[in-house]
């Protein structure tokens, strides 16, 4: 400590530090106890054979090295879950952002304020609704005989499948439902960004003879790049962890057709394989972080 600094100032700085930490104490304690601690414990657990029965008796836990990770590679259900998760993200992501962008562009194309607010409200609604409430509504819609979807299909002479019990339609059904549920969020974020694009840019492009589509490609999309990047990273982090949708709609079936990585981990947790679940979640965590970093790199460099 520099002796030129008066003692009173040092005391004041220390007191300020102490007060600052007192203010943030609730967050820090909770973070350490419920987030940082469990994160590290979870990674540690993944190298052990810990089971639910070992919670009361930690001495029964043995270190098994990377056995859990090796088991993951050879686990058919886990591999299926990984494939399903990739398929889900790769299809639901463009669908969700595309719908969000379409809705935002339409809402920003000079329609009156009041109807715009009304549509925005409606489109955002599924986003704030309980997943279980939505799952019930969709199961009811997709029910093979009594469901509205198949009855409407009957009207045009098509026999609709048993959407959620058919191996080839179960995952697509959940993907469509997810896009339906999530696009409103992207719409709100993209709409806010659209409203900040200066009108002069469009006018200049129009003077240069650019058509509607050319203006969209050369003005709108580049201006939205940072926000689109945000939507992509945010949505892919969320979609990589999709769990509740298949849990409440199909329980991962039929025959693991809708089993996601997170749902598989949840299942292992349910049967008490804590160590194994820990290994799978560590892998998933690593992949999610890597994907986000990669997207941010690519998005910034281009």
């Amino acid at each position: 400590m520099n002796s030129a600094v008066p003692a009173a100032v040092v005391r004041l700085t220390l007191r300020r530090s102490w007060i600052g930490w007192m203010f943030i104490l609730p967050f820090v304690v909770l973070f350490v106890v419920f987030y940082l601690g469990p994160l590290l414990v979870g990674i540690g657990m993944s190298f052990t054979d810990m089971r639910s029965t070992d919670v009361t008796n930690p001495l029964a836990v043995d270190v098994v090295g990377v056995d859990n990770y090796l088991r993951l590679v050879n686990d058919g259900a886990m591999r299926r879950a990984a494939v399903n998760t990739v398929v889900f993200v790769v299809t639901a992501l463009p669908l969700t952002i595309g719908l969000g962008l379409a809705a935002a562009v339409l809402l920003n194309s000079g329609i009156a304020r009041l109807p715009a607010a009304f549509f925005r409200l409606g489109y955002y609604l599924p986003n704030i609704t309980s997943i279980i409430g939505i799952a019930v509504a969709w199961k009811f819609l997709l029910e093979p005989e009594a469901g509205l979807v198949n009855r409407l299909l009957e009207l045009v002479g098509v026999q609709g499948p048993n959407w959620l019990q058919n191996q080839s339609t179960a995952l697509p059904s959940i993907i469509v439902m997810t896009a339906w549920r999530s696009f409103g969020f992207n719409m709100v974020v993209l709409l806010a960004a659209l409203q900040t694009i200066p009108r002069e840019l469009y006018e200049a492009a129009e003077v240069d003879g650019a058509g509607r589509w050319a203006r969209f490609r050369s003005v709108t999309v580049p201006s939205l790049r940072p926000v689109l990047l945000f939507c992509t990273v945010y949505s892919s982090v969320g979609f990589m962890q999709f769990l509740e949708e298949p849990l409440v709609m199909t329980r991962g079936g039929p025959l693991n057709a809708t089993l996601s990585a997170s749902l598989a981990i949840f299942g292992q947790f349910g049967v008490g394989n804590y160590g194994y679940a820990g290994a799978a979640s560590t892998v998933l965590f690593t992949v999610i972080v890597a994907l986000a970093v990669l997207q941010l790199r690519l998005g910034r460099n281009r």
Binding site: L36, V41, S262, Y274, A277
Partner: peptide
Amino acid sequence: LVLVQLAIPAIVLMVPQFVLIA
């Protein structure tokens, strides 16, 4: 730390958080 907590996926924490609660 606030930003770190925002970024940790829920499923990663679920098992150890449950063990802690237990």
